[in-house]
């Protein structure tokens, strides 16, 4: 549980972060979104005390962070940054084992932990353990960065634009990997990004920041359906907002029983989003698709009318709450 209460940060006279409050419950994924210079990175760095806050209160598991020794605090919090910050003079294995070593785990235990983590991040031990950072691709280096952050099994993970420097395909692969990891590990995550799609895709809780202030926060769906102002709307992509919304819902949640006339309709996995289903309909010029499970067995169908109607009801639901 991370709580920020009326937190501000001033560098000299200029406020970088201005009176923000937010709370991230245990096991939730919070994304801070905004244009560059909006104070989102500063906010993140205040949580592990790399930057000291000027006023307000930051509370971690019921205790103000000022009460922790900053070094001990950071060892309990995983930290991933855009430039990976891998130590160029250490091998991949040594890099991943940094925090356990700092915590003075026995070398056997460190090795075990490293060898347990590497496959989780698609880094075969035999191939990567002895490589040096300069021998890795951007995506591999960032996976090592994530592994390093997870090494001492921290409850909290802070990620500062972790995929910002990667190409779109690699970025998407890593986002998928992170989503899977999070579904399994349930860390409390704070992610800083300027990529709204990334935030919508990964976060349970979305915080939009501008000029050091929080403009809007809430679940991705709420923010999508009711952007607080023109700025949030433009971040959400203006007219494409409907599509982004459709990308939050899964096909499996909106299925109708299989109809008789659906034999030749295109098939797609039920885990796809409504946006992907719409795209398939547009591509194949049809108004009906069949959803299948992992074993390729049909589980239901989705029509264009139903897709549109469902998006509308969700909007209505959100409006009531």
């Amino acid at each position: 549980m991370i709580e920020l209460r009326n937190v501000s940060k001033r560098f000299g006279e200029t406020p970088a972060v201005d009176d923000i409050s937010l709370s991230v419950p245990r096991g939730k994924f919070c994304a801070l979104v905004g244009t560059s210079g909006c104070g989102k990175s500063t906010t993140l760095r205040m949580i592990n005390r790399l930057t000291a806050h000027s006023s307000g209160e930051i509370v971690l598991d019921g205790q103000a962070i000022g009460a922790y020794d900053p070094v001990q605090l950071r060892r309990r919090i995983g930290y991933v940054i855009q430039d990976t910050g891998l130590f160029p003079h250490w091998s991949v294995a040594r890099n991943i084992g940094t925090v356990p070593r700092l915590l003075q785990w026995s070398s056997d235990r460190v090795r075990e932990r490293v060898e347990e983590l590497m496959p989780m991040l698609n880094l075969p031990v035999a191939e990567f353990a002895h490589k040096y950072p300069h021998q890795l691709s951007g995506g591999q280096a960032q996976r090592v960065g994530v592994a390093r952050a997870l090494a001492a099994d921290p409850d909290i993970l802070l990620m500062d634009e972790p995929f910002g420097a990667l190409d779109p395909i690699t970025r998407e692969q890593l986002q998928t990997m992170l989503a899977k990891l999070q579904a399994r590990l349930h860390k409390t995550v704070v992610l800083v990004t300027h990529d709204m799609d990334e935030a919508l895709r990964l976060a349970d809780h979305l915080v939009v920041m501008r000029d050091g202030r929080i403009v809007q926060q809430g679940s991705p769906l709420t923010v999508l359906q009711q952007p607080a102002n023109a700025f949030v709307e433009s971040l959400l992509g203006g007219l494409e907002r409907g599509l982004k919304q459709a990308s939050l819902a899964r096909v499996r949640d909106h299925l109708a029983p299989l109809g008789p006339a659906s034999a030749d309709a295109p098939r797609l996995p039920a885990s796809y989003t409504l946006r992907q289903a719409l795209s398939v309909m547009l591509r194949d010029r049809c108004e009906r698709v069949i959803a299948v499970d992992e074993h390729d067995a049909p589980v239901g169908e989705l029509t264009l009318g139903r897709l549109v109607a469902n998006a509308r009801t969700e909007q209505a639901d959100a409006a009531e709450t």
Binding site: N48, Q72, R76, I77, Y79, T84, G85, L102
Partner: peptide, 11 residues
């Protein structure tokens, strides 16, 4: 960035 990471790791 490397130094920042080192601090962030709790060195």
């Amino acid at each position: 960035a490397v130094l920042d990471a080192a601090s962030g790791m709790g060195m």
